[in-house]
């Protein structure tokens, strides 16, 4: 049977990884390639690079980073952030990324999902969704622009729509849980995972190894993503996997 995936996420700005990363004694803690290799060695199943560059120059640098990472890494990786057109997707995928992740652009121009899926295959197109609980909606609302702008979309409606348009995977971030380290948002994760036919990556809130177990068992997630707990050495991918294995969760 297929195993549950553990995915570290790296924020890249102008070609360098930001947020200090402390888990290894690296020569250069900001080098995306070095960090990617280190996570590979720890047993990461996949990596996500989020380009948070503010400038056009920074975006161009990202293509170089992707090319270098692809040369060194023998596990799959996804690139997100600032991908707004089919041309952007081509640039990143041709540089060697396995998947691209669309967020705001997918909400603004849903046809972009279909365009990408038709050109590269669904498996290359990840739709990232930032969701926050909304009392007036009685459910979770989808936000864009890095969580700054509320949309009209309810999360299940949008996730279903994205999949029907060709998304091959959903990267689901709970804005309520993000940064709290109190565990993934299980009701949200479960609701989306059961509503769509493609794999769902849970994101936001990982604090320790048992949070991952809950995301898989109660949240029904296919994969779980975390950034700071791995970066700041609070736990390692290997530790999380050993824990999951001891609890009977299938991992690589």
């Amino acid at each position: 049977m297929i195993t549950k995936r553990i995915i570290p996420c790296l924020d890249v700005k102008e070609g360098r990884v930001v947020k200090g990363i402390q888990f290894l004694e690296l020569r250069d803690a900001g080098d995306p390639v070095e960090l990617a290799k280190a996570y590979d060695e720890q047993g990461a199943d996949e990596l996500v690079f989020l380009d948070i560059s503010a400038s056009h120059e920074g975006r161009k640098t990202m293509v170089e980073v992707v090319r270098e990472v692809a040369s060194e890494l023998a596990i799959p990786f996804t690139v997100g952030g600032g991908i707004n057109s089919l041309e952007d997707m081509k640039r990143i995928l041709r540089a060697g990324a396995d998947k691209v992740s669309l967020n705001t652009a997918a909400v603004l121009t849903p046809a972009l999902i279909t365009e990408g899926a038709n050109y590269f295959g669904k498996q290359c197109i990840v739709v990232a969704i930032d969701a926050k609980y909304d009392d007036s909606l009685g459910s979770w609302r989808v936000y864009t622009h890095g969580g700054r702008k509320p949309t009209e979309w309810e999360v299940i409606d949008w996730a279903t729509e994205a999949v029907s348009r060709g998304a091959g995977e959903i990267l689901l971030t709970s804005m309520d849980a993000d940064g709290e380290k109190k565990g993934f948002n299980l009701p949200l994760t479960k609701a989306v995972s059961e509503a769509v036919t493609v794999p769902v990556i849970a994101s936001g809130g990982a604090g320790n190894a048992s949070d991952f177990q809950e995301a898989f068992e109660q949240g029904k997630a296919d994969a779980a993503l975390a950034a700071s707990i791995f970066h700041y050495k609070e736990t390692s991918v290997m530790e999380v996997k050993q824990y999951l294995k001891s609890k009977g969760v299938l991992v690589r």
Binding site: M1, I2, T3, K4, R5, E169, T197, V198, D222
Partner: peptide, 12 residues
């Protein structure tokens, strides 16, 4: 039981 498609991830 349901299976997500694509079959995506690490399998033995």
């Amino acid at each position: 039981e349901s299976y997500k498609v694509p079959h995506m991830g690490w399998n033995k």
